[in-house]
């Protein structure tokens, strides 16, 4: 079930370096929230703190609070592994497991929780997830082929299928289309619009048209200056951000005056 994310006063550090400063926002369930902003402004870093993936980077840590519905994901008794099962992620470059077939890729995450899986059950999950990712029709006859044999766009949808197979409540997407051609991008964007029926979706994008097309809410991040931490400048309904932003900085960015 889709869940609400509540971030309050979040700082992200790499060692002593403050990378993202004081972010607070609420992300509604069953909506698409887009993060925009120039490169290096901390939007990806911030995204990764929403499922504690930033902890993979040595020295990365946060201060502040992230609530998933009412559960603080940084509470001392919370295992990051559990957080990531609840908050799935799709990366910039499609990264299916190269040693696994399409079928095994989809079921890989689900298997972690359910060791003893009946074949019929697994088949069902694979079909449901691939259908959910709009990929079933294209691959149903070659599920035993390597995941890497698919085109880039198909691989990215395979990764989405893999992420939704574990039935997360939130799906984070870190520039999911930036390595794809326009047709594949369109396929992913259509998919995002469908997925928001069931999931809370957060997407980082460099493409402002994409943010305008797929998102309900847009958040604009920017650096306070060179060497300064990234900040959330403004967040609001996508329509409003792109037509009547409140901050000058946002307007400059979306009208292409900088960034």
């Amino acid at each position: 079930m889709a869940k609400r994310i509540d971030v309050s006063g979040l700082h992200v550090y790499y060692g002593d370096f403050l990378a993202v400063e004081d972010v607070s926002m609420t992300i509604e369930p069953r909506s698409v929230t887009a993060f925009i902003g120039s490169s290096g402004c901390g939007k990806s870093t911030f995204l990764r703190t929403l499922n504690r993936m930033h902890e993979v980077t040595p020295g990365a840590r946060v201060e502040g609070k992230v609530l998933l519905d009412d559960q603080d994901i940084y509470a001392p008794d919370v295992d990051p592994v559990e957080v990531r099962r609840e908050v799935g992620m799709v990366f910039q470059r499609p990264n299916p497991f190269p040693t696994m077939s399409i079928y095994d890729n989809v079921i890989a995450g689900y298997k972690l929780n359910n060791r003893r899986l009946r074949k019929s059950e697994a088949d069902e999950i694979v079909e449901r997830s691939l259908r959910g990712a709009n990929l079933w029709e294209e691959v149903k006859d070659r599920l035993d082929r390597p995941g890497a044999s698919l085109s880039g766009g198909q691989q990215q949808r395979l990764c989405i299928a893999r992420a939704i197979a574990v039935e997360p409540s939130v799906l984070l997407m870190d520039e999911p289309c930036s390595a794809l051609d326009p047709i594949s991008t369109l396929a992913i964007e259509d998919l995002i619009s469908q997925l928001k029926e069931n999931y809370t979706i957060v997407i980082v994008t460099h493409n402002m048209q994409q943010a305008a097309r797929v998102s309900d809410v847009t958040a604009f991040f920017n650096l306070a200056g060179t060497g300064k931490p990234g900040k959330l400048i403004e967040i609001g309904e996508t329509n409003k951000i792109f037509t009547k932003p409140e901050k000058k900085e946002t307007e400059n960015y979306i009208t292409g005056r900088f960034g």
Binding site: E82, R84, E86, G88, P96, A108, G109, C159, A163, V166
Partner: peptide, 8 residues
């Protein structure tokens, strides 16, 4: 990261 993001 793909594996970790699946909750491995």
């Amino acid at each position: 990261e793909a594996a970790l993001a699946l909750g491995a």
